[in-house]
Design a protein around this nucleic acid. Structure first.
Lengths: 355, 355
DNA sequence: GTGAAAGCGCTAACAA
DNA sequence: TTGTTAGCGCTTTCAC
């Protein structure tokens, strides 16, 4: 660290050209003779040049615009958490001339996605962070972005066909395994374990099916596959489905544990159990929604698996910024820790100010 | 966002003074007449000036030196993880002219602390990150740092008397509660639960006593305080202590769960249980040490509570940098999430590249 | 194709 | 006590 930093000027001197030429080589903007190119590249080879990023941003008044395409955070708690992460990142990056534009679609109306995504295209951002929760609707846009050479970072939901710069999220298969494991660790004796898909059609959702695979895989590995039940309860307003759920929870004496694959679904299970004062069934769900937290604190839910949407979104913006700004490609897959939340460590997660 | 950023030049114009004067006011370097001061402060009041930090760093060739005072990372796995976090932060901050100097003491020799800490003082850093694992030895230095006006960030171990800029770590009382809870969740029937302090003298260590308090508090809250045992096993090389441990683990049929308060201690417990093929005792320990991971994967340990030393240290450096650089005070207490690690989510923590 | 030069916003040294 | 000015390292324009 003793020798000073090498500047462009130094390289120019060493190579016997001007700073302008070095800069042109560094950014291969062309308009450089074969000979000058050679000289500059040679010296670059010999020394260890690290551009001064501070000077770079100041020199080029360049600003970058990142578009964010996510479900409307005012309509949903989970996405509001993502939004918080985006805003934190936006705050920190404003100094560097990186600006965020928001584009919200309606989580409860898949058809809203298209027009909003078009608006994103129209805005011509330098990069885009997307939570592509609607597979079918999102798919056509990735080609558009690619054609316009706009880098995409996906988070929360992966669409490998999109071939994004990077995906940030959790391994859902493993998350199903964790859910299974938590139930199993707490119930060593006999009994059955159920996975419930509530409020969504699991056959439409790779998301849920991945969790199911993981859930089954865990019990298979432990030679308990015959103790697993999976129920699809797409709409609990249908009386027969609701009755199925009640029967399972209240009248199946074998049932020792339940994992609910959807973050909102577990509150239905919880309220049924709570209302009937039924104990002894371990309950595992997803995400730190207000309702879920309430049931966790009440001792109805035992574990929640947290996806940390705030941090996912925060990292998404940062990855994009680093790519645009430092030309540093993020790892193509950033799989987040599968955070296990209990009554006793909940506070430590809620109060933590880290992103 | 439409109106351009306000520059010092603009303020100068508005106030009817020169840029130099504005700069002097902004940094209250004095040498400003009462009248000019007034004018500048008035305009500053009216507008919303955000200094351009990029230009600031470039303009003032100022560099900051942060000293890091931690146990020698080459001698200990846990501290090596901290070290990784420090290096990551150092990497990211080098652009801003923030440099890190390392000072390592010997974790196994408390007397080594003093001379190294003196070296830190001598180096006159602009800030210092300390893991003050030796309470007695560390105490006198905080006054020294304070006298020299060197801000201190503490991590891992808190010493409130040090009155640091900020402490980063976990709430150990709560962490004891989490340990207790995990044991309890997995063993709903009868039986006893033990807390073992292995390899350290618990009465010397606030650290361990805090965990013990939390452990007891959890069971008390659940009206199970009579099922709690606490054992001090400071040195397992002493035959009687080793025998005590074996007796507890192998011959106490009531024992249903064990929490080991020290990160290295749990491998002793694990190997005894493994050697004798004893099952049915839930085991909870601390930290992702190689040995602990091995026993977790083998199914001997059920849960590990992770302190995430890497992230603690990373955040420590960043807090200090933000303070020096942006004059932004961190929250005085940054309590980390109490991360629960199991066989199935372990990978997701180990592979995660986030800090 | 090339080099010189101006400028990004701020700091700090230096005249006045 | 002031205003002016010369940088910081890089980008970018503009003559040549």
């Amino acid at each position: 660290m003793i020798n000073k930093k090498i500047r462009i000027k130094d390289i120019a001197q060493l190579a016997g050209v001007s700073a302008g030429t070095v800069d042109r080589v560094l950014h291969n903007r062309g308009k450089v003779s074969e000979e000058a190119l050679q000289k500059v590249q040679d010296t670059l080879q010999r020394i260890d040049y690290e551009p001064n990023l501070i000077a770079r941003t100041l020199g080029s008044g360049k600003t970058y615009h990142i578009a964010v395409l996510i479900p409307d955070p005012t309509l949903d708690e989970y996405w509001n958490q993502s939004f918080a992460g985006i805003n934190k990142a936006a705050d920190e990056l404003a100094h560097f001339g990186i600006y965020i534009q928001h584009f919200f679609f309606n989580l409860y109306d898949s058809s809203s996605f298209g027009s909003i995504a078009e608006a994103v295209c129209f805005a011509q951002p330098d990069g885009v962070l997307i939570a592509p929760v609607f597979y079918q609707e999102a798919l056509p846009f990735f080609d558009l972005f690619k054609a316009k050479n706009i880098p995409c970072v996906l988070f929360n939901t992966n669409i490998p066909e999109a071939d994004p710069l990077c995906f940030i999220g959790q391994n859902l298969f493993d998350s199903g395994k964790v859910g299974a494991e938590l139930l199993h660790l707490c119930q060593n004796g006999s009994g059955t374990f159920a996975l419930l898909h509530i409020g969504e059609n699991s056959s439409d959702s790779v998301h849920l099916l991945e969790k199911e695979k993981g859930f089954r895989a865990y019990f298979k590995k432990n030679k308990l596959e015959d103790r697993v039940k999976v129920l699809n309860l797409e709409n609990l307003k249908i009386p027969s489905e609701y009755a199925d759920l009640e029967n399972l929870l209240l009248r199946d004496d074998q049932l020792k544990g339940v994992l609910v694959s959807t973050s909102k679904g577990i509150s239905f299970v919880s309220s049924i159990l709570e209302k009937h004062g039924k104990r002894g069934i371990k309950l595992v769900g997803y995400d730190l929604l207000e309702e879920n937290i309430k049931f966790l604190n009440a001792g109805v839910i035992d574990f929640l698996i947290n996806q940390n949407p705030r941090r996912q979104a925060y990292l998404g913006i940062n990855s994009l910024a680093n790519f645009l700004f430092l030309k540093k490609s993020p790892p193509s897959l950033e799989l987040f820790p599968l955070e296990i939340i209990t009554r006793e460590n909940l506070e430590s997660y809620l109060k933590s100010g880290i992103y």
